[in-house]
Design a protein around this nucleic acid. Structure first.
Lengths: 133, 133
DNA sequence: ATAGCTGCAAATGCTTTGCAAGGCC
DNA sequence: GGCCTTGCAAAGCATTTGCAGCTAT
């Protein structure tokens, strides 16, 4: 599914994010219907390619807020740079170490059974499976 | 099992690591028989507590080499700092987000079935399951 | 109007590197 | 002796922060 300008606007509003120029522009780059795993540098490059003028700090601000609002998922596979995943449904990842690249694994491709019992008073925030290849 | 001084020395030799003072000292801190998840700062603090005089750079050098030689496993659960795991056998992790702390999950506590087929010409380097709580 | 956002530059935090002095075989 | 290691300080990255000016409602 592809988002048009109206969709982007309402997507942000729905998540209580003020639809400013930069946010709409970055959301437009990211939520085009295809699943992506982007770094901050990727977004800066994508923005440049589309003549979107912005700054490093604003890209960080925007991606961090999108992640905090549940519009993006932050993925930590290596120390150093962070990846942001536009696929919000449950799934897992291949990590291509030599290419420093992520690829989705459908959630039903792996069958996980019998999660261990949690420490007292804890609840699961996420279950991340990363297959390094 | 607890390593004595002789064990430490032969552990390093066995992995083709020259048993220098610093390396023996850090290995002694880490390989005492109990599984640990340490950051560089943890090791620096542990060393200070044992009157081991060293430097930040040497701790990095040492931990990096131990990891490269298969004496430690590097774990990436958050961008920024790296964790080094002394437990080399297959297992998974709880990550306590508020405490920034790892805890082992025995490998047989989780049953993973039906790994997806790999991209051509790839082999699995590791399967990491992290349960964030 | 005013609370919030943007972007620049400076600051931070973790990690690596350059290099002179010292240790290991 | 010669190569490797150590440790200091400086450099390197990714990310965050301070703040003055601008935007959205």
């Amino acid at each position: 599914m592809k988002h048009d300008t109206t969709d982007i606007q309402s997507l942000l509003s729905k998540h209580d994010i003020r639809p400013t120029q930069i946010r709409k522009a970055i959301a437009g780059l990211l939520f085009d219907g295809s699943d992506k795993h982007v770094t901050v540098d990727d977004v800066i490059e994508m923005a440049r390619g589309q003549q979107i003028k912005t700054s490093v700090a604003s890209v960080y601000n925007t991606l961090n807020q999108f992640a905090a609002s549940g519009l993006l998922r932050r993925v930590s596979v290596e120390q150093g740079r962070a990846f942001f995943d536009t696929n919000l449904s449950a799934h897992h990842h291949f990590y291509f170490e030599d290419e420093e690249r992520l690829e989705d694994i459908p959630v039903d491709a792996i069958n996980i059974q019998g999660l261990p019992k949690l420490p007292k008073g804890r609840r699961i925030k996420s279950v991340d499976v990363t297959i390094r290849i």
